[in-house]
Simulated scan of single mutants.
Amino acid sequence: MSAHTAQALEQLLHHDIPLTRDMGVKVIDWQDHSLRLHLPLAPNVNHKSTLFGGSLYCGAVLAGWGWLHLRLREAGITDGHIVIQDGQISYPLPVRGDAVAVCQAPLPASWERFLATYQRRGRARLALHTFIHEQASEAAAVRFVGQFVVHR
């Protein structure tokens, strides 16, 4: 991803979802249809000196939202409004330091079905998976599945 694309997504997040500024969310990269966001501990710390569960949930949703935003732009779709419809999250490990939220591409068939439905109906739903790990570890501390809806 170009530095310009990362900066543009980060500015969009900070403008359209002001909470992301206070959370300190940064776009790390967009490669091979995988989006990575940085979630710093300091502005999201809880009383146990770990990353607050609500901030982790927000980070997981934001990674999915950002992934879908970028992927739609790549597909030439700029008239869609993205919303989260439903989300399930689990927190198998505490996050004791800065974290990385990663949203990876769904199966190609799911993406193609989503695009076809959106083009036909002007509304479509897509399940996206996000995991969050500490910067110093690849172990998934958070697992999230979100149902995102895009409508004209």
Rank of each mutant, 00 (worst) to 15 (best):
K48Y: 12
T50Y: 05
R123P: 00
A6R: 14
L37Y: 01
Y91L: 12
E112G: 04
Q88I: 00
V149G: 06
D86I: 00
S2P: 01
W67E: 09
R125A: 11
V83G: 08
A42V: 10
V150I: 15
G87V: 13
Y118K: 05
D86R: 13
E138T: 13
D29K: 09
Q135C: 04
L12H: 13
A139I: 03
I89Y: 07
H151Q: 13
E134A: 10
Y57F: 15
V27P: 02
V83E: 04
R152T: 11
R96F: 00
G64E: 10
R143S: 08
H133E: 09
C58D: 08
G122N: 07
L115I: 15
T5I: 14
H151F: 15
Y57L: 14
L51C: 10
I28K: 13
E138G: 06
Q135D: 08
F114P: 07
V150Y: 11
Q11N: 12
P108H: 04
R123K: 15
E112H: 08
H129D: 14
R113Y: 01
A136E: 14
R71N: 06
F148A: 07
Y118E: 02
T50A: 07
A116E: 12
A127S: 14
H129Y: 00
G54K: 09
F114C: 10
Q135G: 02
A60I: 11
P92L: 06
V25R: 04
R36Y: 01
V149M: 15
G76C: 10
V25F: 10
Y118F: 15
W65D: 08
H47Q: 11
F144H: 09
G80F: 06
H81Q: 14
R71M: 10
R71P: 04
R121Y: 09
W111S: 04
H151V: 01
E138M: 06
A63V: 10
L41I: 09
L126Q: 04
C103A: 12
D29I: 01
H47V: 13
D16Y: 02
G66R: 09
G97N: 11
I17Y: 06
R21W: 03
W30D: 03
Q11K: 10
S110E: 12
H33F: 06
Q11I: 01
S90T: 15
F52C: 06
L107E: 14
R21D: 04
S34P: 03
H81D: 08
H47G: 03
L56C: 11
A42D: 05
Q135P: 00
I82V: 13
V142A: 11
E10W: 10
L35M: 07
R120V: 12
M1D: 04
V83D: 07
G76F: 02
K48I: 08
E10F: 07
V100W: 01
T5V: 15
S34T: 15
L62D: 01
M1Q: 02
G64Q: 08
G59N: 11
S55C: 05
K48M: 12
H33E: 14
H81M: 13
V83K: 02
Q104F: 00
T130M: 04
H4E: 15
T117P: 05
F114V: 08
P106T: 06
P94K: 03
V25D: 02
D32Y: 06
P94C: 04
A75G: 09
V145N: 15
H81A: 14
G146T: 05
F148S: 07
P92C: 05
Q88T: 10
L35G: 05
T5A: 13
P18I: 08
R143A: 04
E138R: 13
V150N: 12
K26Y: 01
D86F: 01
A60C: 13
V25S: 06
H4L: 15
G66Y: 04
